[in-house]
Design a protein around this nucleic acid. Structure first.
Lengths: 209, 209, 209, 209
DNA sequence: TATGAATGAGCCTTCATTCAT
DNA sequence: TATGAATGAAGGCTCATTCAT
């Protein structure tokens, strides 16, 4: 990689980091491109060499952060399995991942506000095709693999995953940020029970024993 | 009510109608206060005699429209019960109302876009306290009454209602507007099954006497 | 006229004068709206209350100045006729007016540069319908009246006037500003001879004597 | 000519063609240097190795296209003379050339818009000294030769040619592009009559022998 | 109450030009 | 010669809000 390329990569990273900082602390709308550029230490015009506009960089950040959350959760899962010398069953695996993500969002509320209700199916789908980096993850694929590992077959796995993601994201948004109708810990039992129900109800049971 | 009072009421109504029209057709962000005022036939400055800013009027409209949707659904329910000379059981009642609202939103997508993901707990709660008109409805109250009518007792009814509303609103948004992961009719069975599950799982069964 | 109206009129005048000054001294393209506003002593945004954009004010100025040139020439003509107790014949009248305008443009080259090649049929036509002030003049109308006064009838008077205006304006531009192919005084005889020719060739001679 | 030379020539040609395409389709002002360079397949910085700025390349194109129009008209004239086994008299020759150019401009309005009112004496003069190619033509020279061929002598031929060019160019601009005050065919009779007049009025008649 | 002229900060975006490679 | 990343000034324009009338 030439000096120029390295320099370019540095600027890109600098822009992404700066924008993320500003977006999470004052919101997307109240952040101006001038501000992003200034804080990133580049000229205003240079911004446009890297991104089409403010929403371009925002989308990349959302996809990127969603992806990060998910990947970290999966890593934590692996670590857990390793240290416990076990392999969690499917339902527990899903709950584990969701719990990990929710806890992270509970800790990092600015991040939650930022990706807020955008942590949704649409963005997830997009995240698979237009990620910032190339090694973004296919959630559905991972989901299916977890099921398969546990010899579990689901009817309409795509819809099941969709229902879960939508439920988790909208519920967590309200609970974490507004404590409505109760705080995260209070809502978790209901949430997880519901998720387990959704999974069970869509399991296909092989006939013969 | 004096002539002046009436005049004031007229202007308020005109502003609300105009803003709703503009918000649903071009979006909140792309609608300026000047535009609202102009279309409502009043001076720009006058707007501020009625609303604090654009978001003030927006919130009132969301609350108002959500309320309308809900009330109409309840009316349709009553009509149904009357014409069938029956009283739907609790679960079916809830599904009926949700179905009615979803169908309306499917027909009126601009409205869905407008209240979009705002059809949520927070706004619902607010709708009870800061409604435009005074006869806005207390959803939780109605929910509880339906349960009671059917002699059903729920654990944490507030949380149950919350889960349902969040699930319905975020699922419908994606399904209706983007057909993701499938269209409304395709998602309904899964959605309704899940809702029935949530309700059942939180039912308190009286011990036999 | 209320205080407000007077104030508004003052601002309009101030804007027009300032813009004219800047346009003629540094050109339209190199003059920014910010500059016009600043020099006129108003806020940038206020500019847009009076004009759509830079080209709007430019067109008004061109129309206005063209109109002024023409009116002054006609006034000078009347003064001449009065002081000489005569009424110049049609051809001489036209030449007199053209000569008066050319001399003024020769003295005021910035003005010539400004209205430059825009002193044309299109603008003249527009000047009749969208003038800044209401008392703008209909050139064709005046032209016809001059002919009639001298009992002269022209074939296609509109086209004749058009030919003359185009010829005068493009010839004068080159001669005055660049001395090409010779200076104004050098070109005048040829120009006037040609104009007289055009007029004569289009005169309709009544038959019987 | 070395390979490098050829390469250089190719780039120059590519730049000129691309710029002409863009200038005529979107106008000079709305065409950026970046765009020209990109479409020509060279780097932005390279543009400056060939031209000083946008106006440099524009002027070259105007001169070049004007020259082309004129040369083609003269070629058509020769073809006409050949096929009719005649030699048109001077006046008819001039009208023939003008007519040929006007018809071409009527067909190619983008070109007219581009060279528009620049088809003038100033550029014509420049065209003689700073042509893109070296074989650009001296209009005045050709004009004089045509006169001489027909044994005609003109007073101030330079001024006569100038008057004609100015008249033709400004009249045609208005007529072709805006149909003001009438379309090209409508204005031609008046225009050609006037041109013939100008020519006749400046002819020097040899005393009888 | 109602008006609407005035404000001016603020925004996004473009682009000619430079210069290190 | 050629490149193209970087610059940063400049520009046009919008709009929520104020305030004198």
């Amino acid at each position: 990689m030439g000096k120029l390329q390295t320099n370019k990569q540095q600027k890109l990273t600098s822009l992404l980091n700066t924008a993320f900082e500003l977006f999470t602390s004052k919101g997307v709308n109240k952040t101006s491109i001038a501000e992003i550029a200034e804080n990133a230490g580049i000229a205003k015009g240079t911004f446009y060499l890297y991104f089409k506009d403010k929403y371009d960089i925002r989308n990349m950040l959302i996809a990127h952060e969603s992806d990060r959350l998910f990947k970290e959760a999966v890593e934590h899962l692996h670590a857990y399995n390793l240290s416990h010398e076990t392999e969690l069953p499917f339902e527990d695996t899903i709950i584990f991942i969701i719990d990990d993500i929710l806890n992270e969002l509970d800790r990092n509320r600015k991040l939650l506000t930022f990706i807020s209700k955008n942590l949704s199916w649409g963005i997830f789908k997009k995240a698979l095709t237009t990620g910032v980096s190339e090694n973004d993850v296919d959630f559905l694929d991972v989901f299916n693999r977890f099921a398969k590992n546990d010899k579990i077959r689901l009817r309409d796995p795509e819809i099941v995953l969709f229902l879960i993601i939508e439920l988790v994201s909208s519920v967590s948004y309200s609970a974490i940020l507004y404590g409505e109708p109760t705080n995260l810990e209070g809502i978790k039992p209901h949430l997880y029970k519901t998720i387990r129900r959704i999974l069970k109800d869509n399991e296909i049971h092989s006939r013969k024993k």
